[in-house]
Design a protein around this nucleic acid. Sequence first.
RNA 1: GGCGAAGUAGCUCAGUUGGCUAGAGCAUACGGUUCAUACCCGUAGUGUCGAGGGUUCAAAUCCCCCCUUCGCUACCA
Length: 663
Amino acid sequence: MSENCKKPYYITTAIAYTSGKPHIGNTYEIVLADSIARFKRLEGYEVFFQTGTDEHGQKIELKASEANITPKEYVDRVAEQIKSIWDLMNTSYDKFIRTTDSDHEKQVQKIFRRLYEQGDIYKGYYEGMYCTPCESFFTSSQLVDGKCPDCGRECVPAKEEAYFFKMSKYAQKLIDHINAHPEFIQPESRKNEMMNNFLLPGLQDLCVSRTSFQWGIPVDFDEKHVIYVWIDALSNYITGIGYDCDNNSTKQFKTLWPADLHLIGKDILRFHTIYWPIMLMALDLPLPKQIFGHPWLLQTDSSSKEAEGVKMSKSRGNVIYADKLVELFGVDAVRYFVLHEMPFENDGVISWELITERFNSDLANTLGNLVKRTISMSNQYFGGIVEQTEVKEEIDEELILIAEQVAQKTVAKIEQLKVADAITEIFALFKRCNKYIDETMPWKLAKEESLKPRLAQVLYNLTEGICIGASLLAPFMPETSEKILSQMNSKARTIDELHEFGKFVSGTKVAENPEALFIRLDPKKILEQVKEKNEEKIKEKIEEKKETEINLERKPEITYEDFSKLQFQVGEIIACEEVKKSKKLLCSKVKIGSEIKQIVSGIKAWYKPEDMVGKKVMVLVNLKPATLAGIVSEGMLLCAEDENGKLALMTPENDMPSGAEIC
RNA sequence: GGCGAAGUAGCUCAGUUGGCUAGAGCAUACGGUUCAUACCCGUAGUGUCGAGGGUUCAAAUCCCCCCUUCGCUACCA
């Protein structure tokens, strides 16, 4: 393939939101994308790999004002931090786009205007309950006990002039596209979720502007509006490579678009498989070829059972940061671990024991030791010279066959985005090399001068096998690959040079004192170090807890008259059972004075029915009855709620009779 | 509640359209070897393939029902 007719390959990650430091879960995505990008380069594609940051929105505006700096200063800081972690992970992105880049901003304005002018965007009103931290509107039916269904915080009623995107107009076209291209959404199981939950029931129009904050790209023909995240963030995939909606797109755009792969977390699949394709349709652009919603890396923490299989998130305080891992294990080990341990469809598990185990067995034993023993034999027996002598034996053939096939096997796995399996293929070669050493027993050959030529060939075969493996390893563990090849005094090869065994230059002298690639770790010591860190973390958590305060946005003032409309009484729970049809509801019989009311409440997660019975609780008794999950509820049990959404029933401090008025 | 996924050796998982004594890696035990980072190679396993029923000459694999877990979604006064 000549230089100028290389096939393009355009891959992107989601852009990271600059509200804080990214954890290992975010980092997984960039490493995954990087390994695919590097692999495609190895295959001879002209790869363009784009990542970046999503830097607008109210949350950032808030954080910046808390820190007493401008939003731009704030995002500059975080973007730099994110970039430095991407660099720490040795990722080879070609472009780091920021949504505050001026060319991006300009283009987004033009896109918005065009969609408005062609009638896909119209002006309307958004009415509903608004959650400030989440920057989201909800219908009152979506709220959980009047709180935000995402974060559990207070919502306020709001009405906002806003622009809407007519999603429904393109829905059928998108359904047809998804049906015609089964590979479009990966893994395929996600396709059903999108179809069944959103597309088939009918798409709602999407609100694409906000007036409640300023930190965003203004709508240029209606300055009080700011373009909301969808059009702003998603467009990065085209603005980053030079799209222009007045038909002045760059050559780069024309070459690269449509993207070959959008790599994203499974949580934002909906935006990428529904809103983004529809936006593209409206712009009359082809759709990306594939969108892969990768699973999560879940952390199991040996020191606390409850943390098992819990998604990492800052609010849960169970975050493992990439730099800490790198400190303990090194970049390539972390890359290896996240790539190897992450399955294709289900969530992967990360724990200190697992990392240490993999590190020792795969990296130190299988790979590191193989390289070391091979090189040391070459030095011991031949002064470091690795030479072909053509003294071949049948026993060589299996090794050679595996070595010659490993490249194409790996290519096939990457084709399916099965990166973990690709790595396993490469390690199968290293394992075969170790076995080959036992089969040929070089130390025995070394004892007889007449067998030296055979010994030389054996070591050549090993060296060549290792070099093939190391070349293929480059996309996944770039530094290790380079180290091995440099110890072998050899060069990285392209895929095409890996199908044939014997390209290692005969007569090459290998390193005299090769450095061990991975030193075995003592799992006990690692666990001790982790324990120390955990204890620190727990202390921090406790301190944090002490300081936790919940501040709600004030609702409008009410009069005593308003208040007196509400009637609260003490009720005694005399019976309680689960509402079978629902996941969150308990149905209680509450005795209020002589009256017995049936009340349904969303507290199943915190209270067992048997624990409810006998409790005296605070009841709002004159609330209009409503039907929940088919059951009539005639009031409301009052609860306090913490920052994690945990509920606690309100009970009188001293025993009070059932029916006592609360005033 | 709707839609979907999963439940296989101690652990992480493979098991194509049903077919011979159910597999891999790690961990475990034993044996071999010594070039090497207590390493490598070999052997050995253990499994009511979530429970029950059915179809079949034959089911981990198909059908029914149930249990458990998970994902998306709805409801959640």
